[in-house]
Design a protein around this nucleic acid. Structure first.
Lengths: 198, 198
DNA sequence: GTGTTTCTTGACCGGGCGGTCAAGCAGATT
DNA sequence: AATCTGCTTGACCGCCCGGTCAAGAAACAC
């Protein structure tokens, strides 16, 4: 593929990706047909195949862009904060904010993880996300602010809490993002420091 | 449907469910055809539709049975333990053990959550699981062993950690279940007590 | 052996799917 | 005016899917 796109073309591409994201999230990837996608935009089927090689490539593209965007928003949120624990907190908060603003993608991510064809794309992105956080955890451990445990495991635990709370409370129940973020941060910081003193 | 099944019939039903579970987990629900399922067992297509109304019903049945089994194994693991915090710990450990022994179902659960048709089935089961744990958390709060926060949120956080660590470490990396369980328990107990004292 | 019920077969059907393509349109370039 | 390139059309194709069903085969009952 790798077509030359004019600004008009780029806009169409956006439209297709956005609209498809909505349909995929609402009805599922497989049950959504290419015909359905183009009908929603009132264009012919050929348009779709002008911008994407296949339905599969479209989803991969959506996933890639989303992950990239999430990462960007996270790095921007953390900014130049120096305290490692605070960096983690900011990361959690920005994750939740992003997920709240992109609810449809939560479902899409979750689906993509279940299908052999898309899992690699997703995994690569998640590894980057993990790799972004692990150093902060390590730093926290060195500083004695976080208990001495495998940083990778701790990071995954944080990710598990954040994603699940986003799904359960922000997405399904529509609770205020900030409240959920507070709860997630409190639980994770407790889990990281882990003074389970009697 | 509601057929009368002889023991021979019940066995066929089992075979179909087990084999389909594997195919669904490996290749995805939609990409797996009914023809594929019955071919793997070397029987005709009619056999499938003798035991199940539809492919959809089959998945629902698999999900229901799995959730029921998971709950049973959890209740058995908790037994008559009286300490609420310890009950939570036993719940986490038995969850991880079950998930490790039924890896294929992790993927299936995750897929089912993304599709409108199956989400309700899944949600009902998850609500039961949550409802099982919430009282222990409440009890722990009353006893001053767990910090005073919304028990529902805390329970979901536990579930998020457990499921994610199961996926990331037990399923994808094949790490020893007990190690992962130790890490999950440590993180969750930290998150529950949450003495983030300076 | 006869009747009844449970189970199995596999050709068949209608339909919808992902993907193609010859043809045409529109705006910039020359 | 002519041309070229980015974009659009929608009928069409071959395939395979979920699901049906008339016709039996086993197992069991008596």
């Amino acid at each position: 593929m790798n077509r030359r796109l004019t600004s008009r073309g780029k806009e169409r591409r956006r439209q297709l990706m956005d609209h498809a994201t909505g349909l995929f999230a609402d009805n599922g990837y497989h049950p959504t047909s290419v015909a359905e996608i183009v009908q929603g935009l009132g264009v012919g089927k050929g348009v779709f195949y002008w911008y994407f090689q296949s339905k599969e490539e479209l989803l991969v593209e959506i996933l890639r862009e989303a992950q990239h965007d999430l990462r960007r928003s996270q790095q921007q949120a953390i900014g130049d904060e120096t305290d490692p624990v605070r960096r983690i907190e900011l990361g959690i908060r920005s994750s939740l904010a992003w997920l709240a603003a992109n609810r449809r993608l939560i479902t899409l991510f979750q689906f993509a993880a279940t299908e052999e064809r898309f899992a690699p794309t997703l995994r690569r992105g998640q590894e980057v996300a993990i790799a972004d956080v692990v150093p902060h955890v390590k730093e926290g451990i060195v500083a004695g602010r976080i208990r001495d445990a495998d940083p990778l495991v701790l990071t995954h635990a944080i990710l598990g809490v954040t994603n699940h709370l986003a799904r359960a409370f922000v997405m399904e129940r529509g609770e205020p993002t900030d409240d959920v973020a507070d709860a997630a941060v409190a639980f994770c910081l407790g889990g990281l420091t882990g003074d389970t003193n009697p």
